[in-house]
């Protein structure tokens, strides 16, 4: 019976036909060759890196918590930047979010707000930070403004999407009772977006704690600045202590954010 049946079988190709499958595979290999060759990777230096990694690791152990005051000051500054930036972001995102909601804002306002959001989201926090450092000098103010700007843009985008997804029924119902514009907003739009918005804001607080650790690389304050300085002084055991501090801080922030958002539901 089995003689009548084929004894070979290959799974059908993932990309439709076998020809196309081979083409994709070939393209992937070609890309790999091209990218690796253009990156002018020095194999000897790369291999030497593994030895240096071991060396670096040894110099990081044990982490030096002796300068804990410096560490604590940097972490507190990061946290303060994150809190203040989230607050500013929440306040500023409300008008921008309403302006970027298709169903509330007039078309030119909507387009301008959306354009601002698209451009603002493109640039990494570090790029924004370097401009604020040029304008306001080194220190946490530049970091605060960076995080406030990116929070505003992020929260406004989320708020705009929530507003656009609001159900029309309740709005009509409240309007049908003869309520004015503000009453309509307070009684039908706000209840629909409030819980989600608070959740987004808490999420952004968590994200700001993460980002506050990095804007210091270009001198915008916080623990990142301390870390950057310790790296440039080859002060690796202190850097290890800072890294552990950052991991603890970020993990704590994530746990807090998850906890609050679970309670909101």
């Amino acid at each position: 019976m089995s003689a009548a049946h084929p004894s070979a079988w290959r799974p059908p190709p993932f990309f439709g036909t076998r020809g196309r499958q081979n083409l994709v595979l070939l393209a992937a290999i070609a890309y790999l060759v091209w990218s690796v060759s253009t990156l002018d990777i020095d194999a000897k230096r790369a291999l030497a890196g593994f030895g240096r990694a071991a060396d670096l690791f040894i110099r990081m152990i044990p982490p030096d918590f002796g300068r804990w005051e410096l560490l604590l000051r940097g972490m507190t500054e990061s946290l303060q930047m994150a809190f203040a930036a989230t607050l500013a972001g929440v306040v500023l995102s409300i008008p921008l979010g309403i302006a970027a909601a298709k169903n509330l804002a007039p078309r030119p306002v909507y387009l301008a707000a959306r354009g601002l959001i698209v451009v603002g989201r493109t640039f990494h926090e570090v790029i924004i930070a370097i401009f604020f450092v040029k304008l306001f000098g080194f220190g946490p103010v530049a970091g605060l403004l960076t995080l406030a700007l990116s929070s505003t843009i992020f929260l406004a985008k989320m708020l705009a999407e929530d507003i656009e997804n609001v159900r029309v029924g309740p709005i009509e119902a409240v309007r049908a009772t003869g309520a004015g514009f503000l009453q309509v907003v307070v009684y039908s739009v706000v209840p629909q977006v409030l819980t989600r918005s608070v959740g987004t804001a808490i999420y952004r607080l968590d994200a700001n704690v993460r980002h506050s650790t990095v804007v210091g690389i270009v001198g915008a304050g916080g623990i990142g600045q301390t870390l950057s300085a310790s790296f440039s002084r080859y002060d690796y055991d202190f850097a290890a202590a800072i890294l552990l501090g950052i991991i603890a801080l970020v993990a704590l922030g994530e746990w807090f954010s998850d906890w609050v958002r679970r309670r909101l539901r």
């Binding site: 670096l56 570090v126 993460r210 980002h211 650790t213 990095v214 690389i217 990142g224 870390l227 950057s228 790296f231 890294l243 950052i246 991991i247 801080l249 970020v250 993990a251």
Partner: peptide
């Protein structure tokens, strides 16, 4: 892995 930002990994 997740707590350390890409740029800080870059520093390292």
């Amino acid at each position: 892995s997740r707590s350390v930002n890409t740029v800080i990994w870059g520093l390292l």
